[in-house]
Design a protein around this nucleic acid. Sequence first.
RNA 1: GGCCCCGUAGCUCAGUGGAUAGAGCAUCAGAUUCCUAAUCUGAGGGUCGCAGGUUCAAAUCCUGCCGGGGUCGCCA
Length: 604
Amino acid sequence: MNVFAEVEKRVLAALEGLAQRGVLPEGLDFSAVAVEQPRDPSHGDLACNAAMVLAKAAKMKPRDIAEALAAVLKADPDVVSAEVAGPGFLNLRMRDAFWHAVVRDIFTSGAQYGATNIGAGAKTNVEYVSANPTGPMHVGHCRGAVFGDALANLLAFSGFDVTREYYINDAGGQVDVLARSVFLRYREALGEDIGEIPQGLYPGDYLKPVGEALKAAHGAALRDQPEEAWLSLVRRFAIEQIMPMIKDDLAALNIRHDVFFSEASLTQAGTDKVKAAIDDLRRTGLIFEGRLEKPKGHDDEEWEDREQTLFRSSEFGDEADRALMKSDGTYTYFAGDVAYHYDKLQRGFRHLVNVFGADHIGYIPRMLATIAAFTGGTVERDAKGKLKYWHTSGGSADLDIKVVNLVKLFKNGEPFKMSKRAGTFVTLRDVVDEVGRDPVRFMMLYRKELEPLDFDFAKVTEQSKDNPVFYVQYAHARAASVLRNAREAFSGLEWAGDGRVAADLSLLTDRGELDLVKKCAFFPSLIEGAARAHEPHRVAFYLYDLASAFHAHWTRGNDLPQLRVIQADDRALTAARCALVAALQQVLSSGLRVLGVGAPEAMR
RNA sequence: GGCCCCGUAGCUCAGUGGAUAGAGCAUCAGAUUCCUAAUCUGAGGGUCGCAGGUUCAAAUCCUGCCGGGGUCGCCA
């Protein structure tokens, strides 16, 4: 049960009644009426904006509408008070029993409390990470990885049928570089002195075992072959060796994808899915042969003006049309991506979510254009024709592009660029090993995704104990601890079983206790809002706030022992409070699970 | 130069068109014979970058500036 939705229903019913009685005009649009949490809890439990929203259309003073509405709602048995305040807010206070019902609801729903069905089982594809398969993951990758994973969790919790997908960029020039780099390590494994790694090849030591493995598989058979003979073989071999490294790195962050889609597979084994996709796009009339203007601010002599196959993405607000074929007759990266997304659509996904790094921001309009063209959807634009949002809508499927801002790297307060060659390459594994999985995940999520993030390895390591994740986890552990202690204090104490509350919740009368329930009651709304906005960070901030309320209430027990959960001389009260604590623990645990962060039973 | 993102307390950041704009850190003052002090209570600290506009109501939406960052042909 979502208490906000529930009370909103009652408010709407009251408004209908007022309209029928002629207090309000007929035919008013109630769609903007909302029941929300007041910012200041002293205003009440719930606040409604109906009077202000309707005043103009009803040609009435907001306060008059609010008073009329208040009179109706006062008759609701769950409503203790309905007061008009400020410009016309209707502030409602609900009786304790209303909140006790929330505790009962949490037990009934269990781990499903907060889960919604706003996704209605729609097939949804979340593509994230998609790092080049040329080496282990580094810190720069982990923000998008964690974000995408948490978003996938959030959507799954909200009723979407989620597929987590990784697009392996195994078809471009960088994998040829990888193959040559591995071949060098292979010669090294065969005993050759390879000296310095030449410019333009990957120097990392992580390729040594790959070279060894190549030797183990092929002996010296490849050594004296020309590059044409071994390049594609070594390329595939190297990727097969490196993808497990990447999967291990991701597993260290508790990330597991369902599908790894190979870019190279689009044009392998005699098929040409890229051509098929482009041919299908042709029916829209958006594929044409033409010339591109030289980009402004780019006075490069190498610019070659030529006629080429283009996609008219400018039709959808992109700055320019985009090339699909290179001058050597091969496909561009974009052409492959067109085919890849065509494939996603053919697999039946209704919703696509792509997680991009901020360095790919210029790529967004053409991807939106592609999906809009394939699905018959639209990309919303402003009066000047510029993109308004990073999503398409209205077609047979839609795409939302989420951009995670860059992780700016610092070392001892000084910015630095990562360089494999200079030894300033910080691997994701280093960070996870040093700081821990949960703190890394929480740090990445405790921030809006578009906000830049400074990352100083030394500082993060040193301050990892101050990470807010422990604050939230400690709240969970405290809850677990007091429940353990209560069971020890009262043998056979039970507050719930079979999804039902066995305690007398009417004993929960303290304001602090009820405030905790109210915060828990917000969880379903919070999840729904975060899922709709694709913003997992809201969950992290909510959990911090909930933990804070619990810690504060807990500490009140220092001065006021009668507020402690365990009351040695009152079994029934202890049971009721345990039910509350267990409900709160459930919400913490569900929220942490969405974030992919552990919910420990104890922290010592 | 075009486009995009960001600009809120000393610092790092939340903020769903709503009421007196919040939290953490830092600073200062306190709390531990007490279910875990990895905690809590309090104080000080703000022209929400600037200027207009829309609205009953703007940190939030629109326009134009300013500052910081990113990005800009067939790379991936």
